[in-house]
Every structure is written in structure tokens, then in C-alpha cells.
Write a protein that binds this DNA or RNA. Structure first.
Lengths: 334, 334
DNA sequence: CTGAAAGCGCTAACAT
DNA sequence: ATGTTAGCGCTTTCAG
């Protein structure tokens, strides 16, 4: 059996309550005994039993992270894991742990409920991809401390945070205008890809505000594969005059675009500039390295970690913010 | 206050002990009362308090996962996260949770000790990159159920699992020979990159066994950046006759190689074949898509999850295995 | 087959 | 400033 609080108490000639108090840095303990007790703890190699503590205190010092997880998730959605890293770091720094729970849109609500009633964690962090109206109801009903990472696509009283994709788009637009590009084209992802949509929407607004017209015929939507991006690029190139800059909604689209451009012997950025969003997986590795508007996903996760902790301290807090500013990274494609 | 075991007991007209027994599917309970009690549990919406349970049972149903985590980790080491996904899935399927702990080579031993004495988890999973002799000592001393993911670079009695990189290399070699390539070149990573080393070593052995000589002048070592891979490629191309196949130790090297080949107007695979390992981040997206020997990292993680659970059941088990067979994926670069 | 009783190791009033 | 006393909610002998 390992050494308990009573062993320490006995060895130090005090009561268990006293030991508990020095453990929790209570102010009502004399320096003298505190030092002595701490000495005995060292000597005996005493380590408080985390399970007993969390039971007695009704606090786990643990946060649950709900996200989709499956084969290839780390390759296809590295951002999610970067966010996870950030959140874990933030929690770790404040003495909290993070436990992972694979979830889907369908089973997340049930799990939120379980987490709350079984008191598995002091709070939950969940990615927007597993968040639904039902999940929102569970959160409200149980009153569990929470934060959704990614803006919900319906209005609610739930706490969330997200980066501002509209802003990212406008930053991209401004850069393109500064460089003097006039005939702007865009390639987006699927219609229901909100991120893609917001980025291009933000860009279009910025262009319009500045009086630079974006020809609707130069705005294409594919399905975020290199193949489809290649097709869109070829369509974009046909009518004269061809665009002098193509803004791609994400890395994969940009890759297909770049390959097609190379295939028709157009050089980047001399003949056509290419710009996109995010630094990963390969914006910096392709040839030429791509100019992007990047988001620090680790930082987003880190902030998410701090926000849930704020929520566990102040349950009434309502956080709905755009955070983690996008950042322009100029490389060689513009 | 939420509903406890006593509320259920009272409502069902039995003792708390009985409720506990139906909860744990004890065989000494009559079907009749079991059904009745379960009915009451449903009715009252009873959910056992996980904290109280783990305290009473001295078991957390939780496994700790120690790994390096920092900015860009998800982008630079996606494999680790894919393994994490697999492990989480395996544990989740068996009713265990996975808690993440950011660690370094230096602080891992201390944390292993804490985890064991504070009983934070029933077992630990740790990535080889945070495993050291000191960590091995802590594990042996505390006797905690564990599994190291990745073969330690020193002999020890610790449990580990890994994929067989030598075997991967030999599979690559066999494919290249089958395709009839004769003048084989190789580009490896840094000298201390064991994975790179094993892959190329395994390939070389397979070539030698088959009587295909690999000219030492055609084996280069860089530092796993596209730039260095580019330089190596140019060196490889200079002496006549030039190689007809280049085996790259990883994706990044292959990318640099490919870009350089394109730069000097050599076409792949007509002029030179290129082959590498792993499907990610971009082996399938570049032009031409690369033939690779791939490893299913999710599966590795999944197996790792099962192994630790085996260890928590049978602490004396010694697992040291090469698992998760490499798989040849032929695409267009060979 | 069921229940009473005794903890698991720690914290938190409340006395002193 | 310290100790006493009661639990936290569940499991687990051990009787009956």
C-alpha cells in the first residue's frame, strides 16, 4: 500500500486535517508546522492520491475534448490536432488534464450528457464538427462548462470561439491589390464548406469596397480536390484576357491549380499569381512556395483551453468571439 | 444534487449494495430484482458517479498518453497524431479513456512516477521520442502498466511495439527490382534518424541478397529538407550513367528530389523512377503520384491501445513486437 | 440472494 | 493555529 495522508500525519505528529491544509496551502497553518509537514512528506515520498482528491473535492481537474477521430484524421484534418495540442498545453500549464473522446455529430449529445451527470470532467471542449442543436440543448440543460471551437452555423447561447475567415479573405484581397493584380479569379470548395465560403466572401467584399470588380465568371466552385481544382483552373484560363491572380480557398485547391498552371507552361507568379490560406500541409514546400494568409491553430487551441477554464470558474460567462488574428505570409507565388 | 445509488436503492426497495451489484452485473442477483432495479435507474435517470467509482475501485479506466506536443507538432509529426487516434479508438471501444500529457525526454520520467504514485491512470502509453533509460527505470520501479510506441534504441525489459522499417525497405527494394531498375540510388535523412536508416538499410540488404549491387557513391545522406534532397539529387545525377531509380527515405526528401528532377527536365518515371515511404503528407498529391511503402499508423495506435490494456490485465506480460505490416502502394512514379 | 457495515483517502465545517 | 468529526458515492466482505 502506498503512503497516505494519515501516515504523514502520524509521522509529523499532527492530524490528517493539518496535512491536508498544508497540501492545499491553507493560510491558517503556521509556517513552522507547514515546513515540518512538508519535510515529512518528502521523506516518506508521499504523493496525494489524485482519485481520492477529486472525489472529495468534486472536481476532476480534467477537461474533455470531443472531436471526430478516425483513420486518416491526422492527415486530413491536421488543424484539428494542432488545436488539440494548443488546448492541451494551455490546460497542462494550469494543472488540468485533457482527455480525448472520439465523437460524431450523432453521438456527441449523449456523451455530453454522460460527461455531465457522471462528472467525468469539469468542462468540455468540442469541435464544431460534432456540434449540433441537440448538443446545444444538452449543454444548456446540464449547464456544463463548455466551449465550441468553431462558430456554430445557427444562433444559440452556447460559448464558442473561432478565427475570422472573412477577415482572412480581406487580408488576402488587400495583398493582391497592393501587388497590383487586377483580373482576380477565385476557386472555392464545396458549397457547404463554410470556411471556404467565408474566406472568398471576405475577399470579394474587400475588393468591392476598394472598387476592384471581381468578374462573377472568374469565381469557381469545386470540391476541394486537386483534380477539380485543375479543371476549374483550365476553365478560368480559357477566356481572354486570362486572370492575373487566382485566390484558392485552401491548400489542396492551390496545389491542383499550381500543377495545372505548370502543365500549360504558365509560370507563377510572372504569368499568374496564386495565393491561398493556411501554411499546411504544403504551402511552403511546393514550387514556388505559396503566399498565404495563415492562422495559428495552436494559438487558437491554447486560447480555447483558457476559455473553458474561465468558464469552469465563472459558469455564467458568455464567450462568443473571433480570436487568433490571421497573418499574411508573403512567399514567392505573388 | 444528482441522483445517487441510495436514491435508487430507496425507490426500488432494496439496499445500496444490491444496486451496486446490478450495476456491476454480479451473478448473485436474481433476474427479477435486477430488472426492477434497472427500471428504477432508467426512471430516475441515474448515472453512477465515475469519480466515486474509480475511487472505490482503485481503477480509473483511463490511460495516459505521453508525447511531445508543441507548435506545429500536428503538421510536422502527423504520424504521431494518427497513432494517437488509433489508440484512442481502441481504448474508447473498451470503455477506457485516454488522457493526453505533453512531455519531453527530460520530464517524462518524473511524470511517469507521478502518474503511478498518484494513481492518475491505470496505464501509460508513451512515444519513443520521450522514452529514455531514466524513463525505463521509473517504469520498472513503479511497475506501472505501459507500452512504448517505437523501438527503444537500447536494450531493456520494457514493453514496446514498432513497425519493421527494415522490412519496409526490403519491400521497396523488391518492387524496384521487379520493375527492372538496375542503377539504384538512395537519399536518406540525418545520420541519427533511425527510421530513415532502417528503411535504407533494409533495402540495401534486400538488393545485396538478390545480387543487385548498390554503388556506395549512389547513397547520399541529407537532412530531410527539400533543399538538401535537391542538392543530393543533383549530385546523384552528375556521374554517368545516371541512376534509373531513386529511393527516398521519406516524403519530404522525395518532394525535393521530384522538384529537382523536374527542374532539369527529367521525367518520372520514364527517365528516373522515384519511390519513398509513407503516404503522407503528400505522396499521393504530387505529380506524378508517388509509389510508396506505407504504414497504417492508425492501426499501430489501435494495437498499442490493445496492448496496454492487456498489460493492465496481466502485468507480467512482456511485449516486444514488430507489428503493423508495411504495405506496397504502387502509383505512377515507378 | 440480499443487506449491514466498513471503508477507499481526502476535504471541510466546526470546535477548541 | 490545529484537531475532531463527518462525510463524498460507491464497492465489498461477511452475515443472514
Amino acid at each position: 500500500m502506498s503512503v497516505t495522508i494519515h501516515d504523514v500525519a502520524k509521522a509529523a505528529g499532527v492530524s490528517a486535517a493539518t496535512v491536508s491544509k498544508v497540501l492545499n496551502a491553507s493560510s491558517t497553518i503556521s509556517d513552522e508546522t507547514a515546513v515540518r509537514v512538508r519535510g515529512v512528506m518528502k521523506e516518506l515520498g508521499y504523493q496525494p492520491n489524485a482519485r481520492a482528491r477529486s472525489f472529495a473535492m468534486k472536481a476532476t481537474k480534467n477537461i474533455l475534448f470531443l472531436m471526430k477521430m478516425g483513420v486518416n484524421a491526422a492527415y486530413e484534418r491536421p488543424h484539428m490536432f494542432e488545436i488539440l495540442s494548443g488546448a492541451t498545453s494551455a490546460l497542462d500549464a494550469r494543472g488540468y488534464t485533457l482527455t480525448l473522446k472520439p465523437a460524431t455529430l450523432a453521438d456527441a449529445p449523449a456523451f455530453i450528457e454522460t460527461a455531465a451527470t457522471q462528472k467525468l470532467a469539469d468542462g468540455i471542449l468540442l469541435h464544431a464538427s460534432v456540434f449540433s442543436k441537440k448538443a446545444a440543448q444538452c449543454i444548456e440543460k446540464t449547464g456544463i462548462a463548455h466551449l465550441v471551437i468553431g462558430q456554430p452555423n445557427f444562433p444559440c447561447k452556447i460559448c464558442w470561439m473561432d478565427t475570422d475567415n472573412n477577415l482572412s479573405g480581406s487580408i488576402a484581397a488587400r495583398h493582391l491589390m497592393e501587388r497590383g493584380y487586377k483580373r482576380i479569379a477565385m476557386i472555392g470548395g464545396k458549397p457547404d464548406d463554410m470556411i471556404s465560403w467565408s474566406r472568398l466572401h471576405g475577399a470579394r467584399e474587400a475588393f468591392e469596397e476598394a472598387g476592384v470588380a471581381v468578374d462573377a465568371a472568374r469565381v469557381k466552385q469545386g470540391d476541394s480536390t486537386p483534380q477539380s481544382a485543375g479543371r476549374m483552373t483550365r476553365q478560368l484560363l480559357k477566356p481572354e484576357p486570362r486572370p492575373d491572380a487566382i485566390l484558392c480557398a485552401n491548400n489542396i485547391i492551390a496545389l491542383g491549380c499550381l500543377q495545372t498552371l505548370r502543365g500549360v507552361k504558365l509560370s507563377v507568379p510572372q504569368d499568374v499569381a496564386v495565393m491561398t490560406f493556411d501554411s499546411h500541409p504544403f504551402a511552403s514546400l511546393v514550387d514556388p512556395p505559396l503566399t498565404v494568409v495563415d492562422i495559428n491553430m495552436f494559438d487558437m487551441g491554447f486560447q480555447a483551453g483558457r476559455f473553458v477554464l474561465d468558464k469552469v470558474r465563472k459558469p455564467k460567462l458568455l464567450v462568443q468571439v473571433h480570436t487568433t488574428l490571421p497573418e499574411l505570409v508573403v512567399r514567392e507565388s505573388t
